[in-house]
C-alpha cells in the first residue's frame, strides 16, 4: 500500500516537473506573433458558411431543374417527343469498379476540375461501400496551408451491415511530400499506385488503414474503424465493416479522387446540403 502511494507521489511529482520544465522551455522560445488569427479564422469561417449556403441554393436549383425535366418528359406526350432518362437515374457506379484502373479514369465530363468538396467525396464513396444503412455522415475540408498546399477533404460514414455497425473514414488530398513507403510494407499495383495496409490494434479509429499514392500525386486513405464516431463523450465499440481487400479496393478506386467538376459539386451539395464536421 505504501509502495502504491509512493509511486503515485512520484508520478505526480514528475507531472509537475514535466509541466514546469516544458513551460520554461516554451517561455524561452520566441514564437512568431500570433497576429489576427481569430479575425482570419472568423473571416474564412464566414466564407465557408456563405459557400455552403450558395452551394445549397445552386444545388437545389439544379435538383429542381432535374425534377422538372423528369416530370416534363413523360407528361409532354402531346408533342410526341420522349425525353431520355436523366443521367440522375443512371445506375450508380458498382462497388466492383475495377480497382486497378488508371487513376482519374472515372467517366467524368471534360469540365474544369476544382478541389473536391466533402459532399462530393461522400457521394463518390457511398455507392462503393458494402450494402447497408448509412448514418452519421460528416465531412471535413481542410483548406490549403499558407503556402497554398496540402488541402485535404475527408468524410466519415457509419455503415450498418448484418454483422454490425462500423465506421469508415476516407481522406483525399495532394500532399507535397512523397509517401513514406518502406519496401516491406508497401506494394505497387498494376496502375502504378503505391498501396500500404496498416493495422493498429490499439487504435480503434485506425484499426485498418489503407494508404494509396497515385502516380499523379493524389493521396487517398481509407480507415475502417473498430469503434464508432465520437459522440461528445466516447467512441462506442463498432464492427470493422471493410475487409482489407475491400478497403484496398475502395482506396484504389479511381472514382475516389481529390477533384470534381463544378456540376458534380453542385449536385452533391444539393444531396448533402448541411454535413456536419467530425473531430
Amino acid at each position: 500500500m505504501a509502495g502504491v502511494r509512493h509511486n503515485t507521489q512520484r508520478i505526480q511529482s514528475e507531472m509537475k516537473d514535466f509541466r514546469s520544465d516544458l513551460s520554461d522551455e516554451l517561455s524561452a522560445l520566441a514564437p512568431p506573433p500570433l497576429g489576427d488569427i481569430v479575425g482570419a479564422a472568423a473571416s474564412r469561417g464566414r466564407r465557408t458558411r456563405r459557400l455552403r449556403a450558395v452551394s445549397a441554393v445552386v444545388g437545389s436549383a439544379v435538383a429542381m431543374a432535374g425534377v422538372a425535366v423528369l416530370l416534363g418528359g413523360p407528361l409532354s406526350t402531346a408533342g410526341g417527343s420522349t425525353v431520355p432518362v436523366s443521367a440522375a437515374a443512371a445506375p450508380l457506379p458498382s462497388s466492383s469498379a475495377t480497382p486497378n484502373a488508371a487513376p482519374n479514369a472515372g467517366a467524368k465530363p471534360a469540365e474544369a476540375q476544382v478541389p473536391i468538396s466533402g459532399a462530393a467525396l461522400l457521394a463518390a464513396v457511398l455507392p462503393l461501400l458494402p450494402p447497408g444503412a448509412t448514418s452519421h455522415l460528416a465531412a471535413n475540408t481542410q483548406e490549403p496551408d499558407s503556402k497554398g498546399k496540402n488541402p485535404t477533404t475527408s468524410v466519415q460514414i457509419e455503415v450498418t451491415t448484418p454483422a454490425g455497425t462500423g465506421m469508415v473514414r476516407v481522406f483525399t488530398g495532394k500532399p507535397d511530400q512523397p509517401m513514406f513507403c518502406p519496401k516491406s510494407d508497401c506494394s505497387t499495383d498494376a496502375a502504378g499506385q503505391k498501396v500500404m495496409v496498416d493495422h493498429l490494434a490499439d487504435n480503434c479509429i485506425e484499426h485498418t488503414s489503407v494508404s494509396v499514392r497515385r502516380p499523379d500525386g493524389t493521396a487517398v486513405q481509407v480507415l475502417s474503424s473498430s469503434c464508432l464516431a465520437f459522440d461528445g463523450k466516447s467512441n462506442a465499440p463498432g464492427t470493422v465493416v471493410l475487409t482489407d481487400a475491400q478497403a484496398v479496393a475502395l482506396a484504389t478506386n479511381p472514382l475516389i479522387n481529390d477533384s470534381m467538376t463544378p456540376s458534380e459539386g453542385a449536385a452533391a451539395a444539393a444531396q448533402y446540403p448541411s454535413l456536419p464536421t467530425f473531430g
Binding site: I37, V38, A41, R44, G45, T48, N140, Q142, P276, T277
Partner: peptide, 11 residues
C-alpha cells in the same frame, strides 16, 4: 490553429 478555429467558427 487557424484551421481549427475556422472549423470551430463554422460549427
Amino acid at each position: 490553429t487557424q484551421t481549427t478555429l475556422t472549423k470551430m467558427y463554422v460549427a
